[in-house]
């Protein structure tokens, strides 16, 4: 698959990254080499092989449904730029 410069800007927008034209050119060549590797992998014959969703072939351990965490709001909010009435404040978002 050939990556266009427009694709690079789209990926950057999805990741909320602002790229200059120069940065986009660099990202383009780096991403293209990654896509090259993907193309190489996709060329491998995987017929009859069950896909894995994790690199390790083990299953998830489950946690019992009990409350183990206590309220540490003050500690957590001491690292926040702005808080009020217990809420984290962020620039206004309206759908």
């Amino acid at each position: 698959m050939l990556l266009s410069i427009d694709d690079v800007f789209k990926i950057a927008r999805l990741a909320r990254l602002g790229l200059t034209e120069d940065e986009a050119q660099i990202a383009h060549s780096q991403l293209s080499s990654i896509f090259g590797l993907i193309a190489e992998m996709q060329a491998v014959d995987t017929h009859g092989i069950e896909p894995m969703s994790h690199a390790q072939d083990i299953s998830q351990r489950l946690r019992e449904d009990t409350v183990t965490e206590t309220n540490q709001r003050e500690l957590f909010q001491s690292a926040a730029p702005q808080v009020k009435n217990g809420l984290y404040l962020v620039p206004q978002v309206i759908e």
């Binding site: 009020k84 217990g86 984290y88 206004q92």
Partner: peptide
């Protein structure tokens, strides 16, 4: 997200 009460900002719970 709580959009009321706080002028120009959004409160997150």
């Amino acid at each position: 997200s709580l959009h009321e009460d706080i002028q120009g900002l959004t409160g997150i719970d």
